[in-house]
Write a protein that binds this DNA or RNA. Structure first.
Lengths: 126, 126
DNA sequence: TGCTTGTTTGTGCCATGGTGCAAGTATTGC
DNA sequence: GCAATACTTGCACCATGGCACAAACAAGCA
């Protein structure tokens, strides 16, 4: 079998062609969702509260229109950072702790793996 | 002393007022830098190669102008994801493995901490 | 001093996206 | 049904940002 594919790629071009766990974990949607200060503030509030919070309640933590808060929360939900649940007229949002931490830790593991791979180290799947 | 400040915040509004490790770790600049697909591709290539790569070499891994690659690399460097070093005419970029993984792991730890804090659990600094 | 290579910076174009306001939808209570 | 509450969606405005092209800058070489 191709032993070469078990070593780190020699050039960025060959690295781009090769599939690795990194490609799945470096999710642009998640990082794009976390790239806005207002959204980070909302997410931080949900994490700190560590419970389900209503949209109107969450809106009190920053100075933007409630419609903007609603949109930001929807963006965070699409990215997998929070989940929502409707109860009557109220929609509750909560941080997805497990999903967030595993996404971060899995990525850290994948990056560590790349760092440890050397041209002469077998078993590399970077 | 204020025992209440040692419990999780009860509302998102009070959570926003409170300083916690999360506020420092949820860095918009880092996530904004990681929020673009082209930049993620460049970073992935640098991680997979696990060595210093020249700008022109890195440019071969995606189909955008070299000037765009240069700007993306500068953005990644400002965010702390990569470092650069000039050697003659050539500028070498490399992934900052330790910085990246510690940023991710520290954030995971802070989020975990929030998840475990309960209103009756003392010592909370979320 | 040119000439070449490697990279960055200036500029304009265009798409994306954050925002407020207003209108619409969903659900409950009277 | 009607009004009130809670949230979402439509829309217009504007700032940001990714992009290509061209020019400038940096460094080595003839």
């Amino acid at each position: 079998m191709a032993q070469t594919s078990k070593n780190p790629p020699r050039t960025p071009a060959s690295a781009a062609r090769r599939r690795s766990p990194l490609d799945r974990l470096l999710d642009p949607e998640l990082f794009k969702a976390l790239g806005d200060p207002t959204r980070l503030l909302l997410l931080a509030c949900l994490c700190k509260c560590a419970r389900e919070c209503a949209v109107s309640e969450i809106g009190a933590c920053c100075h933007v229109d409630l419609s903007v808060v609603s949109r930001h929360l929807a963006t965070l939900e699409r990215a997998g950072a929070v989940r929502s649940r409707r109860e009557g007229r109220t929609v509750f949002y909560a941080a997805r702790f497990d999903h967030l931490t595993s996404a971060l830790r899995d990525l850290a593991v994948a990056i560590d793996h790349c760092a440890q791979c050397r041209p002469d180290s077998p078993g590399c799947d970077c």
